[in-house]
Design a protein around this nucleic acid. Structure first.
Lengths: 354, 354
DNA sequence: CTGAAAGCGCTTACAG
DNA sequence: CTGAAAGCGCTTACAG
């Protein structure tokens, strides 16, 4: 398969009739070389099919021009807008993005940080639950994202106020007249914060919510319980045990999808027989099928700010360490069709059959 | 931020009181070194916080032990089982996976292949529409996945029989009695193959389907039209213009989600007033909310076979080139609740209001 | 197992 | 702009 040796920068230089140094400058986008030189190099690159060897460039330069993102599980839909936000900042700067998740390297028993540090990224954005704060690298700028528990000493933090989001959800359901309210809970730190704000607000309005889930013992690397499947099962149980519940708040949109499935399964139409509110405003929430009222967790903004912050740190000269910054974004209510004003006389068993 | 120089293999050797060569052997998992040596090295690594420099290792070894996957757009849900299949094979072999998509490097104007080749991957699995077959690297084993148009000379190909899948969808709808049938089409090669099999089978049963969509001029890098949004809009139009249609086949599960949303919006309950069948058996299809009858496109198997094939090629000695292999998997019908037997006298306007 | 050595393909000053 | 040179941190034989 291999056709001998691959062309190197030396071959390009020979083909273009210029020096190796010039080729390197042109390839790195250095403003020095003349237009004629650029053209000659570009032509030679195309002619001999040269592809730069990133490994060599990284080794020689001592940096990668790459920001690493440590995520829990790629499949979480909120990573889509989050990473879009990051890229919108890093892209124009010519900085690459490398992601590492817990999931992808299970077999290698390697943490996302080991992975990222072996890649020699120049900065890290952590958007994951930390099993332990111990192995977070100290010799690279680290930005923490999300209302996670353990603050990393010296790290900048960008969070969304998840408790506040829980309050917004409670306020909305109260505002449209609901009094029998359920919550489909999750066990991770974010889900707990959302629940906390939600319960607090309801209680101060004299309403005691019915809670399902969120009782997982929090073990390192444990299976996440904020899934569609779990949202479905918890909702089925909650609605069976408490058929008088008229509104449900799910810890995230994924669980809300499960709640909508449960409503459908039970013949309760949404929002007529049951209001459902989620959290995240993930891409699925806006679909016609879900049309989900939810709390916008500002993921794209979160990504943008995290990227700007980590770039700022990367540009810092060694020694000029500023104190850690903390930013906290306000979540927002996004009203769609899955919540509605409580009807005067609800028919808990739902649909009146023809 | 940086605490001087990072430890290298030399520091590990010094700390462990062994030679640099021994450290390298231990780190690479060479079976040579004694258990005592291994322990000493492991201890030294932990003590000084050593992290291997992948760039240096790659440069020196001349290979990466990595397989690259070129994908269209990460957000396609079928990549989840597909990559899971690939990892199930590559993981135990200690081979890494690197993905590159069209989307992530738009700003750098770099193709997934350039990206992957600059990373010096040892093999490539292509699971994307090819803008052009021209820039596919020739000096690395390439495996094509999916019923894409242009075969790459010399490349192994693993496909799912998409036309056959279209036939299965048609057979199912005919078997449960539908005669007025719509299709929500896409424009890419896969979607066209599915439509082809579907239409052929219906026509040979004397049924002429109503088609919506699939008319995009196929431009390189054009926006994909197999989206939820497009599935919704095409379905709204189709069902408005042809209210007598009782069953709809969507080119994939994502478009089917849009079709389900349209049915909901129009007050047609599924499957009582409208049957919907998708294609892919992506993770969403199994949710209670969608409960979608679909065609299993065997993505996990596809990933497994593609991985085995590319590994086989990577192990080939230069010169012993075997002829290209072609594998074709059979899709399977997965029956869920979104399709049902046509009722004797359907009420096209759906729900009887209370 | 050790130790000395070459080399992977770049980047980075540096003198001209 | 050129050209010669050092060096990034590993891997890979190779003689002992």
């Amino acid at each position: 398969m291999s056709t001998g040796k691959r062309p190197t920068i030396l071959d390009v230089a020979a083909a273009a009739g210029v020096s190796k140094s010039l080729v390197s400058m042109v390839l790195r986008g250095d403003p020095g070389p003349s237009a004629a030189s650029r053209a000659a190099v570009a032509e030679a690159v195309a002619a001999i099919g040269y592809r730069p060897n990133r490994a060599a460039a990284i080794l020689a330069a001592g940096r990668t021009n790459t920001v690493g993102i440590a995520v829990d599980d790629y499949r979480n839909l909120w990573y889509v807008p989050f990473i879009r936000g990051i890229r919108s900042v890093l892209g124009p700067l010519g900085i690459r993005v490398a992601t590492a998740d817990n999931y992808s390297n299970e077999h290698l028993a390697v943490s996302p940080f080991d992975e990222l540090m072996s890649l020699r990224v120049d900065g890290i954005i952590i958007a994951a639950e930390l099993p332990t704060t111990a192995d977070v690298p100290a010799d690279v700028p680290v930005v923490m994202v999300g209302s996670r528990a353990g603050a990393i000493p010296g790290a900048d933090t960008i969070t969304v106020d998840d408790e506040r989001g829980g309050e917004l959800a409670a306020d909305h359901l109260l505002a449209v007249g609901h009094l029998r309210i359920g919550h489909i809970a999750g066990s991770d730190a974010i889900a707990r914060a959302r629940r906390l704000g939600f319960e607090r607000r309801l209680r101060s309005a004299g309403v005691t919510p019915v809670i399902a889930g969120g009782t997982h013992v929090q073990t390192t690397g444990g299976t996440p319980d904020t899934t569609e499947r779990n949202g479905f099962e918890l909702s089925m149980r909650l609605l069976a045990e408490h058929p008088d519940v008229t509104a449900v708040f799910a810890a995230n949109d994924t669980m809300a999808m499960g709640a909508l499935g449960a409503a459908k399964r039970l013949g309760r139409s949404v929002p007529a027989d049951l209001s459902v509110i989620g959290f995240d405003d993930s891409p699925v929430a806006a679909t016609a099928l879900m049309d989900l009222t939810t709390i916008d967790a500002r993921y794209e903004d979160l990504g943008r700010i995290a990227a700007r912050t980590v770039v700022g740190r990367m540009e810092d000269r060694v020694g000029t360490s500023r104190p850690p910054t903390v930013a906290r974004l306000e979540p927002r209510l996004v009203e769609r069709a899955s919540t509605a004003r409580l009807r005067a006389n609800p028919s808990p068993r739902g649909r009146t059959s023809p």
